[in-house]
Design a protein around this nucleic acid. Structure first.
Lengths: 169, 169
DNA sequence: AATTAATGCGTGACAAGTCATATAATTTCT
DNA sequence: AGAAATTATATGACTTGTCACGCATTAATT
């Protein structure tokens, strides 16, 4: 038998090209690359994880916050912080207290050691943002963010909403 | 003691607002939402995973492919396919053969049952793309993809490359 | 005051992605 | 031909993200 599994290189290349405009696929791979870049940079900035960096940054910028506050500034699920914070506390970078006004809340505060860790990573991550700022003008960033808002609006629509959408001509 | 952990709501809100223009953070949460939307849709389209859907789609579009081919069309690491494919084979949706021309390669082919699974999910995922097409004009998609190309170009730069970049005035 | 509802957080289970390393097959180089 | 380098795939270990559920605390309702 003549190896009927004919692998058609032209069609494969065409497929690769076509998928370049698939926004969903592009988002996935770009995000993955972005995450890896951040991890590599943080490796040189004290060896902290992305979640840890975001937390130190937030706490440095705004002062004490609850876990829910952190999850909303970071646009992520609270469970991620719920797991990361005890490690940060054990490393001595943050302290955690039950809030007196509302016993359900946990107030997270940066320690002196946490500030040191922030100062170690901050120049590197700042350099990253600065370099990005060279690649895009402020106007472009605004326009890009506009597109991100629109696609976010789309991907947050519930599945049923999309399926019930009327066909257009 | 007067609960010195003052949680400043204004600063928290300011931080949330400011992070709206943080492209890295936006990409992360948008990608996560996109993935969840796809998972929800696929749940209604036969209960396959995202990796499985992409694979069935690729194989349907281009015919037999190797694992590397699949990872390049999907812009993802081959290890992901290496793990997903045996499951697809066990479900009877694809077949796998060692290539005769190059014994290192594995040729993956859609089975009849795999085509059925594709046809079950395809209308739902097609509807998703169609609905996205209503939210963006073709020109906008092109412009958006241009921004994605640029940020991809940036996030794929090695960490050292970014750190050695000269400061600009 | 007592129930009920809502909120904040912890945790288990899972998906999707990465890398590093190992092994087998093929190519290239001397 | 034999050795060395490259390539394709498999696999273990890890991170980031989700959801669902449970428990404790607070707020709202009757």
């Amino acid at each position: 038998m003549t190896d009927e599994q004919e692998r058609n290189v032209d069609r494969i290349n065409a497929r690769v090209d076509r998928e370049e405009t698939n926004l969903f696929a592009r988002l996935a791979s770009i995000y993955a690359a972005s995450r890896k870049q951040a991890q590599d940079l943080l490796q040189k900035g004290g060896g902290i994880s992305i979640v840890e960096w975001r937390t130190l940054w937030d706490l440095h910028e705004v002062g004490p916050m609850t876990i829910s506050d952190l999850s909303s500034t970071q646009r992520t699920d609270h469970s991620q912080l719920s797991r990361a914070l005890p490690k940060l506390r054990d490393k001595g970078l943050v302290s955690m207290h039950q809030a007196t006004q509302d016993g359900r809340q946990t107030i997270v505060t940066l320690t002196a050691k946490g500030s040191d860790a922030y100062r170690l990573a901050a120049p590197i991550m700042g350099k990253r943002r600065a370099t990005l700022g060279e690649a895009f003008t402020q106007t472009e960033i605004t326009e890009f963010v506009g597109y991100l808002d629109r696609i976010e609006n789309f991907v947050r629509r519930p599945a049923n909403d999309i399926l019930q959408e009327e066909e257009i001509e």
